[in-house]
């Protein structure tokens, strides 16, 4: 009756990441959209500010966790041959790790310390 065997960990991960994603997106919609259009420096400053920079990196990490569970569920439901399932899951995980490294490097390159 472990926490892992019941899929409880994936459930919690999916819900908590969803809450963070929702809050981040709502903040972006409420604060950013009314200030459009903006120029390059204004745009860059938003993500250079340390709080927003870290919040954006956390957003990508939340997205990684959330999409990982979702994509895993889709693969389990529709792809039945085990080898193909493993290949797809590995490929999707790699893609998500690459995207997260990419966003981390991007956020690190624009942050104003």
């Amino acid at each position: 009756m472990s926490w892992r065997a019941h899929g409880m960990r994936a459930w919690v991960l999916q819900r908590f990441s969803a809450a963070y994603i929702a809050v981040y997106v709502l903040v972006i919609l409420v604060y950013l959209v009314p200030n459009l259009p903006m120029n390059f420096l204004q745009w860059r400053e938003i993500f250079a500010a340390p709080v927003m920079n870290i919040a954006t990196l956390l957003f990508q990490i939340a997205l990684l966790a959330h999409a990982w569970v979702g994509i895993r569920d889709i693969i389990i439901d529709y792809v039945h041959p085990v080898p193909l399932r493993l290949v797809l899951m590995t490929g999707m995980s790699l893609l998500q790790i690459i995207l997260t490294v990419w966003v981390s490097m991007l956020m690190f390159s624009v942050v104003r310390l």
Binding site: W43, F47, L95, L106, V110
Partner: peptide, 23 residues
């Protein structure tokens, strides 16, 4: 499910343009 998958498969493009816009 469909909307989630569509958003997921758009993320590489969105990150690409996000990076382009910030650099």
């Amino acid at each position: 499910r469909l909307s989630g998958a569509m958003m997921f498969f758009m993320t590489p493009f969105l990150i690409y343009y996000f990076a382009l816009s910030l650099q």
